[in-house]
Amino acid sequence: MSETGLPTTDGRRLIAAARRRDLLFAGIGLAVLFVATAVLLALVLDLVLTGAPHIDLDFLTSYPSRRASRAGILPAWVGSALVMLVTAALAIPFGIAAGLYLEEYAPRNRVTDVIEINITNLAGVPSIIYGLLALGVFVYGFRLGETILVAGMVLALLVLPVIVVATREALRSIPREVREAAFALGADKWQTVSMYLLPAARPGILTGIIVALARAIGETAPLVTIGALTFIAFLPPPPITAQPPFVSFEWLGSPFTVLPIQMFNWISRPQAAFHELAAAAGVVLLVMTLAMNGLAIYIRYRARRLLG
């Protein structure tokens, strides 16, 4: 710079250099983005190209077998579905309730602080540790065995923070005018919450639930520790029966396997034929989780557009 402050030749060169660096960084940013996308694409393509040819009706309706050509994922997806049923039944009410309490009821005090820090930390505890919790407390402590019920419970605990956080964020985004209007009309807390806040928060909570269940369905480690069996040639007892009362909860106490465990089992075998089956199971799993995440993203996007 010259003394007058106007750019001299040197100054201009400086500016040009700065601009070049600016562009370079933008380039690097785009490159990172590109690589991340490419990895995701490679992962999906590799899995689909290897696995998709194996997916047919037989694959979905057969039991696992020692012969790769005959093996299927029937018990795995049935197990996943039943475990999800338990997880949803537990995680949804508890997650929403905890989120409601922390956002709408909790007084600002020590107890609230402890609960908040605690939930944040639970969200960061490695999933395998939840598995050991289930092993020590549910399987051996409560003698519930290595069952669908325990699997559903441990996954519910694991994804609880996701629903809690989503509920809180959804409630926080409701303008305070809605609360004031309800209270001015004479509503008490629970009326305000149940009649006005929960309906308004529904899209956000729903998004959280779907993301949570998508995570639960792909979770493997905590189920390994509670001994989800990898070779199961039978189905759990059906939840609906022919005799009255037509519903049965026997399946809750049944041993089980789930899709990710079945996939893990097939990956661990040395034969390439089983690796292809693993890819096929992976495709099924990936389609389910990506579809659920996509649905969640869509719901949030639509809700945001509706709110303007």
């Binding site: 995701l40 490679a42 992962l43 590799d46 899995l47 993301v211 998508a214 995570r215 369905i217 792909g218 979770e219 493997t220 480690a221 990710p260 996939m263 893990f264 990956i267 690796h275 693993a278 890819a279 992976g282 799993l285 990936l286 989780t289 990506l290 659920m292 995440n293």
Partner: peptide, 10 residues
């Protein structure tokens, strides 16, 4: 959202 077991396979 990709399950970790799928990353393991990859």
């Amino acid at each position: 959202g990709v399950p970790t077991v799928v990353f393991g396979y990859f």
